[in-house]
Design a protein around this nucleic acid. Structure first.
Lengths: 216, 216
DNA sequence: ATACAATCGATAAAAAAATATCGAATGTAG
DNA sequence: CTACATTCGATATTTTTTTATCGATTGTAT
């Protein structure tokens, strides 16, 4: 569960904020900002400046300069390195339904170190999506082994998710990004990250309900 | 920020776990389980039983019975009510690209109280997706007003997200589920929930990097 | 009828995360 | 050159979240 070779113990909350910093800093950089103070970042991102300094100190050794703040380029580099985005990792998506195809066609993941190179599906309705191949499931194990893929994305329906997961694991996948609404069981050598869109929706609908309620 | 009319102060962490409970309980119910103990739920969901009891106590007044546990049906009902899923809310998605179309075609959101009834896009490449209409952007304001839509989903590219957001807000939308990787500015009367897929990916890639590192 | 095991619910403790405070550093303006 | 405002970085405090503990309840088996 440690994140770097140094055995640093960085909280999930901090890790989860990192893409936000990265996005913000990249935007700022392309807008011509070379230095940014923690208070500026904090104001723009609506968090506290102390938290910003603490988070950044955990992933970057670049010191902030009084009166100037932090060097944007250095922060970007360090965050990318921390998140492992410097070595783009190839991934496959299993399940070429709506969500799977959306992922296959979305170039934005490249900014986050993810390079989806192929999709697999039982019912192969297309040969490719935006130039990326869709293969039948039978080819999954050999493809993963031959290309040394470490990361798989599951976008199949709940009913077949565990079977797909097993196939991935047996082929040597080490990380799974699971969009099926189900709990997967995997050996401890494999990391699973569940994305629960419903959880996000819950937060929204909860706040919205509270808001509409107040007005009555 | 309160969630119910009673002014209960329920943490985001708890709210975010609710869809997980709901999913689990629905599965259990359809598998014929009528009663479940907190320890059983805890084991299956890989959290602590105390946390389960605490979470459930916050949203449900149904008492657990010693030796039996909790009545599944009652919990489901209370959680759905808490999350506002009992009154299905209509929503529109703006941006009929890959992700937008995926949402439009995905019936699963109905289980979570979300009924997507139409999509809007500048470039209208299809007339409908799985029977749901895709309209040109010009019709957005009138459609929202006439159908009294309260919730909008943004799946357009970053560059046009704020403009879409403004259009939604001016038409009377009160909640926005934002999948564009950008910070939206809205009046305080509108709730925004950002879904940052990259943040989820960060957690996975971070853990994966740590794991692969250890083995070297 | 009685002992027992499973379970809840409440309170206490611990752990984790966020925020506040303050001295030190450093460039800028007068 | 000196006063000053800004900012960092470290430490302390507060708040939030999770986990531990334990008495009370209740159905079941003997």
């Amino acid at each position: 569960m440690t994140h770097t070779e140094k055995g640093n113990n960085i909280s999930n909350a901090t890790i989860a904020r990192m893409p936000g910093y990265l996005r913000y800093l990249r935007d700022a950089k392309s807008a011509g900002r070379d230095y940014l103070s923690s208070s500026t970042i904090a104001k723009d991102m609506a968090i506290s400046s102390v938290l910003v300094r603490k988070d950044l100190a955990l992933v970057s050794s670049a010191p902030g300069r009084p009166r100037y703040g932090f060097e944007v380029a250095g922060l970007i580099r360090d965050i990318e390195k921390f998140l492992g985005y410097d070595n783009l990792s190839a991934a496959v998506v299993v399940g070429a339904g709506g969500l799977g195809k959306a992922f296959l066609g979305y170039e934005g993941f490249q900014n986050y170190g993810l390079n989806i190179i192929a999709a697999f599906d039982i019912r192969r309705t297309e040969e490719s999506v935006r130039g990326k191949p869709v293969y039948p499931m039978e080819l999954l194990p050999s493809f993963i082994r031959e290309n040394n893929i470490k990361l798989g994305i599951i976008t199949v329906p709940k009913a077949s998710a565990q079977a797909v997961c097993n196939a991935l694991v047996q082929s040597g996948i080490r990380g799974i990004w699971n969009f099926a609404n189900t709990q997967l069981s995997v050996p401890s050598s494999v990391v699973v990250k569940n994305v629960d869109l419903a959880a996000s929706l819950a937060l929204l609908s909860g706040e919205l309900a509270g808001l509409l309620q107040q007005e009555k």
